[in-house]
Design a protein around this nucleic acid. Structure first.
Lengths: 220, 220, 220, 220
DNA sequence: TATGAATGAGCCTTCATTCAT
DNA sequence: AATGAATGAAGGCTCATTCAT
C-alpha cells in the first residue's frame, strides 16, 4: 500500500498566486487562512488579517489586489492541484497498488485523503464553505480544474467493476458515497466537536470497512 | 412503513420566536430565509430582506430586535424541534415500523430525512453553514436541544444490535455514517450542482442499499 | 430689451436627480457645490461635504448613490436645461427683441449670460473644470443635451447674416468669439482675482461694443 | 513680422527645478506632464507616473521631494519665464515690428502665442486647471513672476493708443480681450473637441481680424 | 544610486440600528 | 403600527511617502 501526501504549503510555493512571497506576505497568507477558517471569509476584516500577521494593512493589498484575490489564492491551488491529484490517484494504472482489489483501493484512498484533510484542515474548511455558498468562487475554481483529469476518473471504477469488485452503480454515486463519509468524519471530529479524544485508528478502520461492504457487489 | 414529515413552517407557528406573526412579519421571515440561503447571512443586508418582503426596514426591527435574532428565530426551532424529533424517531419503541429489521429502519429514516431536507432546503443550508462557522450560534442551538432525547438515541441502535441486525460499532459512528450519506446526497443535488435532472428513485434506493450493506454485521 | 434669468436652484427643484430633497439633503447639495467650486471635485472628501452640511456622511449616500452621482446631479441640469435655453434664446424668432440688429442681439445675449453665470458662479466653475478634464462626464453631459435645439442655433445667425448685420464666418466661430469673451470676463473677475472692485457697467459695455465691432461685416 | 517661439523643454533645461536632470528624471518629468494633462493632478498617482516613465517610485521621490514639487516644477517656469516673455513682447520698443500698427501687433502676438500654446498644450492644460483651482499654487506662481515686467505692459498699449491705433480702454481689459480669444481657440480645438479637422489658417485669420476690428478705435 | 516593500492615514461606501413622524 | 431618513462605526482599498537593501 502506498501513502502519498502533499502538504498544501508546498503546493502554494509552486502556485502562481503564492510563489515568491516575502516573509511578511507569507505571514499575511497564514493569518488569512487561520482567520477565514475560524470566523469565515465575510466575518474577517483585512485589518484583522494584517494585525494577525503583525504587518500593515497596506502590505496585504500590495500582494493581493483585493480581499477576494487573497481568498482565491488560498483556494485555487486546491482546484488546480489537489482535486486533480485525487482523480489521478483514482485512475492511475501503475502497479503501486492493486486495482483489482476494492479493499486495498478504498484503504489507500481514504487514508490518503484523510491525512491530507487533517493536515490542511483550515483550508479545507474555507473551501467547503465558500464552495457551497459562492457561485462565483465555485465557477472560478471549476475553471481552474484541468479538464483532462476528469474524464479519467472512470478508469479505476470501471476496472473494478469489470473484475466484479465494485457494484454497478454510476461512478458519480460511488464517488459521492466515498467522499461523503470521508468528509463526514472530518466534519465531526474537526469542524464541530473538536475537544474529545477518540480512537482514531479504530474509527478509520470502521470507515474503510463500511465503504468496502457498502460498495461490494451483492452476490445473487 | 410509516412516513412522517413535518414542514418547518408549522414548526415556526408553534415556536415562541415566530408564533403570532403578522402577515408582514411572515413575509420578512420568508424573505430572510430565502436570502440567507442564497447569499449567506453576512452577505444579506437587512435592507435587502425588507425590500424582498415588500416592507420597510423599520418593520423588521420591530419584530426582531436585531439581525442575529432573526437568524436565531430561523435556526432555533431546528434544534428545539427537528433534531429531537429525529432522535425520537430513532428511539421509538412503538410498533409503527419494525425495529428488528435494519432494512426497514434505514429505509424509513432515510426517506423521512430526505423528504424533510428537501422540503426545507433553504433553512437546512443556513443551518449547515452557521452551525459550522459560528461558535456562538452553535452553542445557542445546542442549548436549545432538549437533553433528555439525546440519551435515548441508543435504544433503537442497541435493539438492532442485540438482534444482530446492526454492526457493533459506536452509536455515534453509526449515526455519522447515516447522516453523512444523507447530507452528501442533499449537498450534491441541492447545494452544488442543481441543474441536471437525476433518477431520484434509483439513487435513493442505492443510498439505502449502501447503508444497509455497510451497517449489516459481518458474518463470520 | 428683454432680460431673462433662470436661477439654477429652481432648475434643480424640477430635475429628477434633485427634486423632492429633504432639508438635510439640500444642505448636502449646497455644501457640495460650495466645496467642489472651492477645491475641486477630487480634492473634496465626502466627509467634508457632510460636515459642511452639518449632517452625517451616511445621509449623503442615502440620497446620492456615490460621490460621482452627486457631481452629476449638480452638472446634468446645466446640459439638460441651461445650455438648451441658451440656444433657444439665440434662435428664437419671436419679437421680443430685434434680430435684425446685431447690437441688440449681442447686448441681450451677453447680459443674460453674464447674469446667469454670476448668479451661479460656483456651479459654472465646477462645470468648466469637469467638462475639460473628465471625458466620461463630458459624454454624460452631452448625452443629456436635447438634440433638437442644437440644430436651431443657426437660425438667428443666418438671419443676421442675410441682413448683413453679421460677418460671414462659420457660426461655430462666431459662437466661440462670443462665449470666449463672456467666459473670459467671468474668469477674470470671479475665478482668478476676486477682490478688487471694478466698474462693472463700463466693462460690460466695452465687452458688448467689442463683440459688435468685431462681428460687424467689413464694408468694402 | 517676427515670430519667436520658445519650446518649454528648453525653458525647463534652464530652470533650477528642472536643470541637470538625468535621463530617468526627464522620463519621470515627461510622464508626469502627459498624465497630469490627461487625467488631472489629483487623479494621477505617483505609481502611474513612475511606471509611465519606466522607473521606480523611489526614483521619483529622489528628485522631487513630493508630488506637489513635481507639479510646481512643471508650472513655475511658466510664471517665471513664459508669462514675462509675453509681457516683454508686448512692451518691447525695438524696431522688429511696428508698434504703431495694431494689425501687425495683434498678428504677431496671436500667432506667437498660439504656436507656443499648441506646442506645449499639455503643460498649458495643467496650468489652466491648477491656476483656477489651487489658491496655493496660484500664489506660488504669482510670486515667481518678476514684478518689473508687469509695469511695462502698458508701454505698447499706450503707444498704440497715442497713435490712435488702439481704443481707449483699460489695458487690463484689452489684455483680457486678446487672451480670452486666444485661449478660447485653444480650448475649442485642443481641450474639448479634438477630432475634426478644421481650416487652421482661415480661423486664425478670422481671429486676428476679429481682434483688430474689436480693438480699433471708433471714429466719430 | 535605484528599487519596491512597507506603512498608515484617509478615502468612499455599506450597513445595522434608532427614532421622529 | 409602519415608515424611511438619519446615524456613525467599520469595512475594503488607495496612495504619497519612507527606508532597508
Amino acid at each position: 500500500m502506498r501513502l502519498i501526501m502533499k502538504n498544501l504549503i508546498e503546493v502554494y510555493k509552486e502556485s502562481p498566486e503564492t510563489s515568491n512571497m516575502t516573509d511578511k506576505q507569507m505571514k499575511i497568507f497564514r493569518s488569512a487562512i487561520k482567520l477565514f477558517a475560524q470566523k469565515g471569509y465575510k466575518d474577517t476584516s483585512t485589518k484583522e488579517i494584517a494585525s494577525g500577521a503583525g504587518v500593515s494593512e497596506g502590505s496585504l493589498f500590495k500582494r493581493f489586489n483585493n480581499k477576494e484575490d487573497l481568498l482565491l489564492a488560498i483556494l485555487k491551488p486546491i482546484s488546480r492541484v489537489i482535486l486533480p491529484e485525487v482523480l489521478v490517484e483514482l485512475s492511475t494504472t501503475d502497479q503501486q497498488y492493486d486495482h483489482s482489489n476494492l479493499q486495498d483501493f478504498i484503504n489507500v484512498l481514504v487514508r490518503n485523503r484523510l491525512e491530507f484533510f487533517m493536515e490542511n484542515i483550515d483550508v479545507i474548511k474555507i473551501f467547503a464553505n465558500e464552495f457551497i455558498y459562492d457561485e462565483k468562487i465555485r465557477q472560478d475554481m471549476v475553471a481552474e480544474m484541468p479538464r483532462e483529469y476528469i474524464t479519467n476518473i472512470n478508469n479505476s471504477f470501471d476496472k473494478l467493476k469489470s473484475d466484479q469488485q465494485l457494484i454497478e452503480w454510476d461512478n458519480v454515486e460511488i464517488f459521492r458515497f466515498i467522499f461523503s463519509n470521508i468528509f463526514g468524519y472530518i466534519a465531526q471530529h474537526y469542524f464541530l466537536f473538536k475537544s474529545p479524544k477518540w480512537n482514531e485508528k479504530k474509527e478509520i478502520d470502521h470507515l474503510v470497512d463500511f465503504l468496502v461492504k457498502g460498495l461490494t457487489p451483492t452476490i445473487n
